[in-house]
Simulated scan of single mutants.
Amino acid sequence: MKAKYLLLFLLTVVVLAAAWVGYTKYFNSAYKYAKPAQAAFVISFDDQYVAEWYAQRALFAKYNVEATFFITNPDSLTSDEVEMLKALERDGHEIASHGAKHVNALNYTEEHGLEAYIQNEIIPSVKSLQKLGFTPVTFAYPYGANSRTIDHELLKYFYLLRGDSWKVKGKTVDELDKIFYRYDGRRVINGLGIDHGSGVTLEDIEQAFKRAAEHKQAIKLYAHAINNSKATYSISPEMLEKIFKAAQKYQLTSVTFKGLIL
């Protein structure tokens, strides 16, 4: 009887080990498009503040910054906004997907199922952006809401997925491992929110830049609107310029999200 239970235990261990190896191989092994490690920073902007982003073209160009703009509700873009996005893309920026209706993936899939989420949120977003002349290859989860199951399915549609990370009480920003890309082929990554309401300071960002420079990693940041309102989901042009100057100070190359692996 003991031998029977021992055999069952060993079989369980083998199955669990195989499942874990399969998962880590899928998400963490060297991706075939992985780039050589370099000290870099990646900055993105979410939602649909197109005119405000466009107004900062000169600032981006001054510091050779290539940003990623994750667009939600693409069907509601005006013709002027589409032309602005095309101009930003010509400048070297990336136009990417943030969902058709900006829904919370976890809540939506729990209520309607994963297939409905793909059919109603992901495919329409991709098709709408393609119809407008863009080719979205990366995706940012609204609210940073994701799971392994959802990730697994969305990686059939995108090269790279971005979740969210925030400043944690009791930790310095350079201790948040998830916001650093190590060029290990991971395709599900996290960005650090740096909007006015995030509590992230320029000193915090410089600490992260220093780590990225010393270890040849890419630090990933994201914000939303660009204005002087001090609203929760906004960042000022002045703060952006200070961030870009700090990136130059630490000799960080600016890359888009797709630039991490393509």
Rank of each mutant, 00 (worst) to 15 (best):
Y141R: 01
Y141P: 15
N146V: 03
R148W: 10
R148Q: 12
I150L: 12
I150D: 13
D151P: 00
L154R: 13
L155F: 09
Y159I: 01
L161G: 14
G163Q: 14
S165Q: 10
W166K: 08
V168R: 05
V173L: 11
L176P: 00
L176T: 00
I179E: 03
I179T: 13
Y181H: 04
R182S: 11
Y183D: 04
R187A: 14
V188M: 07
G191T: 13
L192K: 12
L192S: 10
D195S: 13
G197E: 06
G199Q: 11
L202A: 11
A208K: 04
R211C: 05
A212I: 06
A212N: 03
E214T: 11
H215S: 03
K216C: 06
K216A: 09
K216S: 14
A218D: 07
A218P: 10
I219V: 15
I219E: 02
K220I: 13
L221T: 03
A223E: 04
A223N: 02
A225V: 06
I226T: 04
I226G: 02
I226Y: 10
N227Y: 03
N228D: 13
N228Q: 08
S229W: 08
S229V: 12
T232Y: 07
T232K: 09
T232E: 11
Y233M: 07
S234R: 01
S236P: 00
S236Q: 04
S236M: 02
S236H: 11
